[in-house]
Design a protein around this nucleic acid. Structure first.
Lengths: 253, 253
DNA sequence: CCTAATTTGTTGTATATACATATATAAATA
DNA sequence: TATTTATATATGTATATACAACAAATTAGG
């Protein structure tokens, strides 16, 4: 019939229709945390589909963290863990986009330098080894939002590419200028106050609170191939995190 | 045979043995990002197992984000996304524990108050409605690290429990004192400077940069049932994030 | 030589079946 | 009554099969 919960003749896979059906039930609260789903056999019988197809759908729900299964007992709606929070750094950038502003990366400086003691230690290389040095400002509609200082090793000896200016992420810079490929990354987010130089670039007053993020890129042999420091204006950036099943309803509150 | 890659007589499921086998290959770098896995049929033939079992193993690898599949082409090792970062708030607390220090929550104040205009707006209730007000200090080995101010509705009218003092998380407080259960949560992380009061409690100087986190708890009907503000000392807290396949090796670097 | 049609190879979906394993309930037994 | 044993029920694992959908290579035809 038309408008059934699962349409066997639809181009949309049955398991996916079923997944969406239960997702809706959970997000809307019709199925609450702790509630049991019907048994796989019951679902299969009710919709006249095979149990393996039902398991496929439930597997997706498990992957999404919305239900959990217990052998011999059943399948239950999970309790959203409101205390294990993750902040996604992408919000840093997405937020700009959402406001309809246009993000722009401006390369202030890019040149070859010889590593001093401090930098040599950071990159795990010898003093006076040649490295690349970048200074970047991220702006939205002309207003500076972030100031980034980055260093990469210079083992590939290739020129600075146009593409790097469009995506001057540290991993991209590392990929371009190291003869080994980026494998792992470590980021540390801290609070700080803007230095004189940073305040000047960002157009804020001295001692303004800022986000300070330090990133280190490693290759497959766990050698450091890039190091960078980013300063985000505290009055323009924030990290937002939502948890729970009916998250869509509370956004923009 | 003993010591084979997959042991059909083992109590460990075949699909899981296969999953672990490929996981190891990827983490060790024997299979590099972009590399193709053998086809499902090849794997099935090589280990003398069915294709569906192979697909089960690959499904786990996909869930773990280590490989991706392309219909009609094959299965490939994923490139670790070093730019989509998530910060886990638990580091805030785990870090303390890792240093061997003992975390302690001290309840400074807990009482019933009548909502003023500002609070009424935050909790989405009428002015003068009775609410609960909490002030908490989190210490490690006696040193204050965070200062939290929390408000919950008082619809259940139950006394403050001993258990709340052990876990004074906003969702727990909301669960204890609202007649509806917490369903969703919103957190916003910002940078700020300590106010006079906050600085005094935390034992830092005025205008010290701090993390400021605001959390809102909603019930299933998307009504706000709790609101809280946390101040984390900027000189004691940081958020760390690792990405990539061989992250274990770069920790503590 | 170029283009279109066909074939081949790959993952995706769906079904049916069998047995393993964990849990809870009911029955049998001491 | 208390304990053990069987039974029913639930999810977990593994296999075999068939066809769909997509991608790339090959072939046929102009």
């Amino acid at each position: 019939m038309q408008g059934e919960i699962v349409d066997k003749n639809s181009v949309i896979p049955i398991y996916y229709q079923l997944f969406k059906y239960f997702e809706k039930q959970i997000r809307s609260g019709q199925l609450q945390p702790g509630d049991a789903l019907p048994t796989e056999m019951e679902i299969a019988a009710r919709f006249d589909i095979s149990r393996m197809t039902v398991r496929h759908a439930i597997g997706e729900l498990v992957s999404a963290g919305m239900v959990y299964t217990q052998k011999g007992k059943g399948t239950f709606v999970a309790r959203p863990r409101l205390d294990s929070v993750v902040f996604n750094l992408n919000n840093f950038y997405d937020e700009i986009r959402q406001k309809g502003m246009k993000r722009h990366s401006e390369l202030l400086e890019a040149r070859i330098i010889k590593a001093d003691e401090k930098l040599a230690k950071r990159l795990g290389i010898d003093i006076n080894t040649r490295c690349l040095y970048f200074r970047i400002v991220i702006t939205a509609d002309g207003e500076p939002l972030a100031y980034e200082t980055k260093y990469t090793v210079y083992t590939k000896r290739s020129p600075i590419l146009e593409s790097e200016l469009k995506d001057p992420s540290l991993s991209n810079l590392a990929a371009s200028h190291s003869d080994t490929i980026p494998s792992s990354s470590k980021r540390v987010l801290m609070v700080s106050t803007a230095t004189e130089e940073e305040a000047a670039v960002l157009g804020v007053s001295h001692d303004t609170p800022v986000f300070l993020m330090v990133q280190t890129i490693y290759n497959a042999e766990n050698k450091i191939i890039a190091w960078g420091k980013s300063i985000f204006r505290g009055d323009r950036y924030k990290l937002t995190s939502y948890e729970g099943w009916n998250v869509e309803n509370i956004k923009n509150n």
